[in-house]
Design a protein around this nucleic acid. Structure first.
Length: 191
DNA sequence: TATACGATCACCT
DNA sequence: GGTGATCGTATAC
């Protein structure tokens, strides 16, 4: 069942958690590529110093300020794209970053750049409707899985928000190696 | 107009 | 552990 706009019109952390284990579908040319979402991060509006919207409403972040259920795609480091799913009501800029996907053959796409590269997601899909009929959609998971929380990756500049546990990772007891692989990214030295 | 840098990744030692 | 690739965006001038 396709996640509709009401699904995205909710608390961003709840959406980020419920997308763990959900299906991701992307129309890539004539074929439809799919996978299972295994890692997400929540970005929670202007107050969240790690969220792009914390620096105001700009041409880049415009989609995040719009209706929920749309794709916010931006380029990072000059060579990668990141896919985000916009949540909350218009005027409230929040989104969920898709950081990791497990493909049907078991291949793990570990990281947002690799995920977009595999699915052929680029800036042309920025603003696309993701509630069905468009190039991207998600389908509800059939059951809940244990989820591990961690601080988000690559947001050390975000002051008190850098340690917020807004990164969510699938902890499928049948696939412990998957969690292990994802935890290597952004691992911090104990102090 | 100029400059610094990022919600990354691959490859090096 | 570290660094280079590569460019759109934000910010400073």
């Amino acid at each position: 069942m396709v996640n509709d706009r009401a699904f995205y019109l909710r608390d961003t952390v709840a959406v980020a958690r419920q997308l763990i284990g959900a299906g991701l579908f992307v129309r890539c040319g004539k074929e439809v590529l799919s996978g299972r979402i295994v890692e997400t991060e929540a970005y929670c509006g202007p107050e969240d110093l790690a969220c792009h919207a914390a620096r105001g409403r700009t041409a880049r972040t415009e989609v995040m300020f719009g209706e929920p259920g749309h794709a916010y795609v931006y380029m990072i480091y000059g060579m990668y794209f990141c896919l985000n799913l916009v949540t909350r009501e218009a005027g409230r800029p929040e989104a969920v970053l898709i950081r990791g996907v497990e493909l049907p053959d078991g291949t793990l796409l570990s990281g947002p750049g690799k995920t977009c590269r595999h699915f052929g997601i680029d800036k042309r899909m920025n603003g696309a409707d993701i509630t069905g009929g468009g190039p991207i959609w998600t389908e509800k998971r059939r059951r809940a899985f244990p989820v591990v929380e961690r601080p988000r990756v690559g947001v050390d500049y975000a002051g008190e928000w850098k340690d917020a546990p807004l990164r969510f990772i699938l902890a499928d007891p049948k696939k412990p190696e998957l969690l292990q692989a994802l935890l290597k990214i952004g691992a911090r030295r104990p102090h």
